[in-house]
C-alpha cells in the first residue's frame, strides 16, 4: 500500500515539480502510512527506483539510446545499462531516506 501510494503520488508530482519533490512525497506518505522504519525505507527506495527505472527505460527505448549511449561514454561508464542502474540507485536512495525520515519524524508523536 505504502509502496503503491508513493509510486502514484511521486510520478504525478514529478511531472510538474523539480526532482526533489519526490522527497516530499515520500516523507509525507511515510509519515501518514508507514508502520516500520525498514518498511518505509524499502517502500521509498523501491517506489522511486521503479518510477525512475520505468521512465528512464521508456525514454531510452523511444530514443533508440542515442543520447544515453553518449552520456554513458561521457561519464566513462560506457554502457547505458550501467547508467540506468546508477539512475535507479540514486533515485532509490533519495526516496528511501526521505520515506524513512517521514516515518521517524512521525514516531516523535506516537
Amino acid at each position: 500500500m505504502l509502496f503503491l501510494l508513493i509510486l502514484l503520488f511521486s510520478v504525478v508530482v514529478q511531472f510538474f515539480l523539480p526532482w526533489w519533490s519526490l522527497a516530499l512525497v515520500c516523507f509525507a506518505v511515510a509519515f501518514w502510512k508507514a508502520r516500520y522504519g525498514g518498511q518505509a525505507f524499502l517502500a521509498g527506495f523501491g517506489a522511486i527506483g521503479l518510477a525512475w527505472l520505468g521512465m528512464a527505460l521508456f525514454w531510452h527505448l523511444v530514443t533508440d539510446g542515442l543520447l544515453s549511449n553518449r552520456v554513458a561514454a561521457m561519464l566513462t561508464v560506457n554502457s547505458p545499462w550501467i547508467l540506468l542502474v546508477v539512475t535507479v540507485v540514486i533515485g532509490g536512495v533519495v526516496g528511501g531516506l526521505s520515506a524513512l525520515s517521514g516515518y521517524l519524524v512521525r514516531r516523535l508523536w506516537v
Binding site: 526532482w19 525512475w52 543520447l67
Partner: peptide, 16 residues
Amino acid sequence: LGPFLSPYEGFWRSGA
C-alpha cells in the same frame, strides 16, 4: 546528478 539523472526532468527526457 539529481536533476541530471532524474528521468522526469534530466537528460533521459531530452530525446523526444
